[in-house]
């Protein structure tokens, strides 16, 4: 299920603007890796290159390699649609399909894949909602629209939708930044459970969150506005927050950035 991600020499552009420059890192399976860094340092852009979502923005293109176990996601003849089916994503703002019921939202990915049995659909939806710690709250209103839920519930619905297709990797782009502290806690607990089954990469602006949920932390920075973002260092979370090897990381996590 969970696979290792190996990135080497990855550079991403928006048109002629270089957004991130020459990033290499390894993400271990069944672990949580957090990306931290100031706004504009390219951590979200980098996250979006991992499931080939970067190239759907106008002018977005990528150089370099992203290996999922041994398969290059940017290799010749690789279908980006197939890549996105194996690498799930959760976004900053909860985005359930507003025209679909809670049930259909969770089933949406399976229906896209086309390989499901009608009888199994209900089981998968229940399992995914339980996996996202949402089942007890919605089991009596599966046919109601997903947009009627609270923000935190909607975000867990989006997580259920993402894990329903059993992805190899789960990418989360600031999944709690639009949520209140209690909903945030619920999502963080969930991340702890999900890492038993999935490789998780999470972008966050909240350093406490990175310290709480992640095993490894990567610090990104940019030398000046308009310059491409770079990976400064990646290490065990404990080390990054106690004794980082680069001064810039220490400055950032202790609030003396700039």
């Amino acid at each position: 299920m969970a696979k290792r991600i190996d990135v080497s020499g990855l550079t991403a552009y928006y048109g002629s603007h270089k957004a991130i420059d020459d990033i290499s890192m390894t993400v271990e399976p069944r672990s949580v890796t957090a990306f931290i860094g100031p706004s504009g340092c390219g951590k979200s852009t980098f996250l979006r290159t991992l499931n080939r979502m970067h190239e759907v923005t106008t002018g977005g293109r990528v150089e370099g390699k992203v290996l999922l176990d041994d398969e290059d996601l940017y290799g010749q003849g690789v279908d980006p649609v197939a890549v996105r089916r194996t690498i799930g994503m959760v976004f900053q703002r909860p985005n359930p399909f507003p025209t679909m019921s809670i049930f259909d939202n969770v089933a949406a990915g399976l229906k896209l894949n086309g390989s499901y049995k009608k009888s199994e659909l209900g089981d998968v939806v229940e399992k995914s909602l339980k996996g996202a710690n949402l089942w007890n709250e919605v089991k009596d209103r599966l046919n109601k629209p997903g947009s009627g839920l609270s923000g935190g519930q909607q975000q867990r619905l989006c997580i259920a939708r993402a894990i329903a297709v059993e992805p190899q990797v789960l990418l989360m782009d600031e999944p709690c930044s639009a949520l209140d502290p209690i909903s945030t806690l619920a999502i963080e607990d969930l991340i702890g459970e999900l890492k038993e089954r999935f490789t998780i990469v999470i972008v966050t602006h909240n350093m406490q969150q990175a310290a709480r949920v992640s095993d490894r932390t990567a610090f990104f920075n940019l030398s000046a506005v308009g310059q491409p973002g770079r990976l400064i260092e990646i290490d065990d979370t404990e080390r990054i927050f106690s004794n980082p090897s680069v001064q810039a990381t220490e400055d950032y996590i202790s609030g003396r950035f700039g």
């Binding site: 197939a82 996105r84 985005n95 399909f97 990915g109 297709v165």
Partner: peptide, 10 residues
């Protein structure tokens, strides 16, 4: 963001 939700699902 809804279009991206669909894209990200494959």
């Amino acid at each position: 963001m809804i279009e991206e939700a669909a894209l990200a699902l494959g």
